[in-house]
Every structure is written in C-alpha cells, then in structure tokens.
Amino acid sequence: MAPIIEIRELHKWYSGVHALKGVSLDVQPNEALGLVGDNGAGKSTLINILSGTQMADGGTIRYEGRPVTFRNPRDAMDAGIETIYQYNSMVPTMSIARNMFIGREPLKASLFGVGVMDGRKMAQESMQALADVDLHLRSPDALVGELSGGQRQGVAIARAMHFKSKVMILDEPTNHLAVKETQKVIGFVQSLKDMGITAIFISHNIHHVFECCDRIVAMARGEIVLDRRADEVTMDDVLDVL
C-alpha cells in the first residue's frame, strides 16, 4: 500500500540550532504510529510542520501522493490532518458545541466570510459526534472547562472524526491525566484503527505508546534513531537508543 504521508529530508533550524537533520519517514494508511523521544529530540518540530504551525527549512512532504506545503493549521486541517494537543485544542470558556466548530462554523448565510451560525445544527451534530466516539454528555451547551481531561480529549477526537480527518496527530494526549482517564484516551486511539484513521501518537510515556501503537519511531537529536514494528521491539530497546 502507498504511504499516506511521505516525508523526505526534512530540515529545520532555530537560530543556529539544527532541530531536524534531514528526517525521512513514511506513514502507512491506517497504522498507529508511536513517536517517542526526549525533550528537544525534534518530535514536536516534526509534528508542528505536519500540522502547519511551523514551516520546514528544507525537504518535502507528500500527502496521499501529492507534494504539499502547509502554511497554517487550516491548510493541514483542510487536507485532513488534525492535531490534538493536551492543552491547546479547546477553549475552556466556550461550550462543547462552539468548540467543536471553531473556525469551521456551519453558517446559515454569510457575507465576506462572516455569517450567522446554525446553532441547532451545531448542537445536533456535536452530540452525534460525541456519541460516535462513545462519549455521552448531557448537553452540547456545557462549557469545556467543566469537562475532565479525558473528556476533553474525547471531544477533540470527536471533532476530528466529525470533520473526516484521515490522519490524527495526538501530541502528548495522556499528559497529566489520571490513570482511568489515560486508559480512556488510549481506548480512543485504539478505536481509530477500526475507523480507518491513521494515528500519530506522541508521548513521553513509552508504556502508553506500546499499548496502542503498531509501530514505534524514536527520535533523538533531530534524527530518527529507531523505526520498528511494536511487536518486534521491547521497551528496553527503545530506551537504549534515546
């Protein structure tokens, strides 16, 4: 099967620091890829480039066979790559329904891109999207700030599902979560496979990565130092190269 994402010789410098040193990586459709590495290993940089928050200084990315350049998060989202962060993908002071549709609000009518939101559609579709990931919340009007960490990740995943993402990047989604909540998020990631979604799961916690990924990619000092199937490698092997 052709890779859904083909990364070739990606370079990134930060004022003299060579953060990505010619990284090449193929991501297969429908696989769950675990990306591990210490702080400063370059995994965040790689993810930021894939999600459109940063641009590479050199190298190419092909997505579904076509060369792509994401200039901002919206470009990546429109292509079908959705990134879920531990903190910054939800606005706590806004309702679930409003959060689901930030930047992609269904409009009844619009002029120069500004228009009246279809509140009913937002409420219905957000409840449906939540139910689809088996998250049953009482009201779409509840504020996201009132949700637990795991529930928030559920809403973020439901949002990505609703907008038919093909690739979901989960950046440290289990950080600072209680054990039970962590299991829930890992469950979400495992269920992505059944829905035909490619997942890139970034974590400090190797246990979490092994629990839900088919393939482990480890990065250190801006390079990929290990790339193996999860069932062919042990946690110690991974820890040794980091």
Binding site: N88, V91, S110
Partner: peptide, 24 residues
C-alpha cells in the same frame, strides 16, 4: 453571540493557543 466572527472573538480571548491551532 450568533456569528462565526463572535465565536472567533471568544476563542481568541478565551484561549489564544487553541484559537491559533484551529486556524483562526
């Protein structure tokens, strides 16, 4: 309260990194 612009205003003030990562 009723337009997408209003949603963006609230998101921008509510939590800037989230608004940015959602492409607003």
């Amino acid at each position: 309260s009723h337009t997408n612009f209003g949603n963006w205003v609230r998101a921008t003030g509510g939590f800037l990194p989230a608004a940015q990562s959602m492409g607003i």
